[in-house]
């Protein structure tokens, strides 16, 4: 019981510290808003609507139920692509990390996947699937898989062989060594890659929707563009960013903080706050 209380207190403290540290982030955001306002005053509302007008548009859009469904469509597509890409990328990356030959075969493929711009994949996927869910999700997968793959492969390759030997000395078989040692190490490498992949997933999903007019936030953006409604276009961009931030800080970061608890302990006293 006391153990559970202590664990709860520790996590509450961590969340509290995180929220407190967000003051710095907020001040940066307000600085950005100030620059935005300056741009608005210099070029007028048609080129760049003011931050206030844009937030009004966001509220207006948020007031309609249908728009929530539109945002959820994009989030759903981005998340579906992200999850499939993470699972496939990590699984393939782990295998490649253990087999030097497989990695040598995979490296050029990774370069190829990273080098071809997502826009090219969008065009191909449009031809293959039409303007459907599958087309957006496929494009997201192709854009996000290499990131997860490289993170996982690097993690396996840089694992601590000394720990492996230690586990072997205590009689651990290959599976135990993988599940208790290698996976933890892979996690440390894969999480930053996953954050990057998640951002990519949202960007590519919106881009694919705009190009293919496939509904979602991108569809809203395309409509705002055809109506030359700049403040609505900016509002859709803002909504996409808010959705990304919500997923990153609501899902990825808490999991990361839990897995990497020891890194916080490693920080010198005073910097934790």
């Amino acid at each position: 019981m006391t153990g559970i209380m202590a664990a709860l207190a520790m996590r509450t403290g961590r969340a509290g510290r995180f929220i407190w540290s967000s003051w710095a982030g907020l001040s940066a955001l307000f600085l950005f808003c100030a620059l935005w306002q300056a741009g608005h005053e210099a070029y007028g509302s048609f080129i760049l609507p003011s931050p206030l007008a844009t937030s009004h548009s966001v509220l207006q859009l948020a007031g309609e139920r249908a728009n929530w469904l539109i945002a959820c469509t994009t989030v759903g597509r981005a998340l579906a692509g992200f999850l499939i890409a993470s699972l496939a990328g990590i699984a393939a990356g782990v295998l490649a990390g253990y087999s030097a030959a497989a990695l040598r075969l995979a490296r050029p493929l990774v370069t190829l996947l990273l080098g071809v711009p997502p826009i090219a994949w969008i065009v191909l996927a449009m031809i293959w699937f039409g303007s459907t869910n599958g087309m957006v999700v496929t494009t997201v997968i192709i854009a996000a898989v290499p990131l997860a793959f490289v993170g996982a492969a690097e993690g396996v390759m840089t694992r601590d062989r000394g720990l492996d030997d230690m586990a072997r000395a205590f009689g651990a078989d290959a599976w135990v060594r993988f599940s208790t040692l290698a996976l933890r190490h892979v996690g440390a490498h894969v999480f930053p890659a996953l954050v990057l992949a998640l951002g990519t997933a949202f960007k590519v999903a919106v881009m694919a929707e705009v190009l293919a007019n496939a509904g979602g936030v991108g569809g809203g953006l395309a409509r705002a563009r055809s109506n030359l409604d700049v403040s609505e276009a900016l509002a859709w961009v803002l909504i996409a960013v808010i959705a990304l931030i919500a997923v990153e800080y609501g899902l990825i970061r808490p999991v990361h903080a839990e897995v990497e608890r020891w890194r916080e302990a490693a920080r010198p006293w005073g910097i934790k706050r």
Partner: peptide, 26 residues
């Protein structure tokens, strides 16, 4: 058998208790 290495070879992500208990987990 047990073994002690030149370096401690502890898992950095696990507490001292979990490190000590690792052979039991295996």
């Amino acid at each position: 058998h047990g073994m002690v290495f030149q370096e401690p070879r502890l898992m950095p992500w696990a507490t001292a208790r979990e490190n000590i208990a690792y052979p039991l987990r295996i």
